[in-house]
Design a protein around this nucleic acid. Structure first.
Lengths: 152, 152
DNA sequence: TAGCTAATTGCAATATTATTGCATTTAGTT
DNA sequence: AACTAAATGCAATAATATTGCAATTAGCTA
């Protein structure tokens, strides 16, 4: 039961991200909106050329250089992340805890989900601290099966 | 105070890794020993071409294709890992817990260290389980400053 | 709303990284 | 020493990433 449509959620999240960009002095350009939309819709790690292909299939053309630069920007602002497993990029959830990003990647359907957990995050930081290591940010990637794929 | 020399430790670790390879039916070839040595000595994430360069500087030549294939093999056996931050490869410590690898990467000196912690690992898996996610393995990467670089 | 300007994008050229099929070599065995 | 499957090297190619500069555009300002 959905109270709001998927597409309206996407539009909302994209708008939020754009607002963050603007808040940092970056412009709300068409290419940036397009890349954010694709990342938000797809929910799977995408390479720059994946994104280019998806957009082209919709009749939208973006130069690959532009996509590289947009992804760099999004990552620098923690609005996107580069995944280890695939090398692809994913959109971060906006409520992710600063400096701590935890992803689960389903080996079967490829879907990724991001989770924020303050406690676990703190514990990990403490753990590092015990080794005299001062953590700036950390990234955790789980690989396995999501609940739906596990049942099959 | 070192009771054993650094180089003898490296030799030992390399030999252990080679033994694991042989145990799985893979041959103990010169190129594989060379790549393992470099990874073990360097303690920093290295790209295939980094490895090629280091070896060439020592008068050893390996084709880059060979290095790619060796790194693939090592990763598939959990003897090496590809790091998120740099995309470079690092040697895994042999005592790392099955399915759970935790690295700390110093942003200043670039050194990486792997840590195994059964409890933290279990906690993370439980956390995933709560979301209905069944973890096959996970990888955690801390980025920050090591104790030495922090003091400066 | 037109015009201005810095930021952003597109383009072309190039560099870097990765992959493939096949001939040659080598480790581990007999 | 000879054999054989496995591993490496080579050449060609594909895919991915980067750079400098010209053209365009978003967000201002008048």
């Amino acid at each position: 039961m959905h109270l709001v449509s998927r597409s309206s959620i996407i539009a909302l999240v994209v708008r939020d991200s754009i607002r963050i960009l603007q808040g940092q002095g970056y412009k709300a350009t068409k290419p940036r909106k397009l890349v954010l939309e694709v990342l938000e819709e797809t929910e799977k790690p995408l390479s720059p050329y994946d994104i280019k292909g998806i957009l082209r299939a919709r009749g939208k053309y973006l130069n690959h250089v532009t996509i590289y630069r947009i992804l760099d920007l999004l990552c620098s602002l923690n609005l996107a992340h580069k995944m280890l497993s695939s090398g692809g990029f994913v959109k971060c959830s906006l409520d992710a805890i600063e400096g701590c990003h935890r992803f689960m990647v389903c080996q079967h359907c490829g879907a990724i989900r991001e989770f924020a957990d303050k406690e676990l995050c703190q514990e990990e930081n403490d753990f590092a601290q015990d080794f005299g290591f001062h953590t700036e940010y950390h990234l955790s990637e789980f690989s396995g099966l999501c609940s739906q794929c596990y049942r099959k």
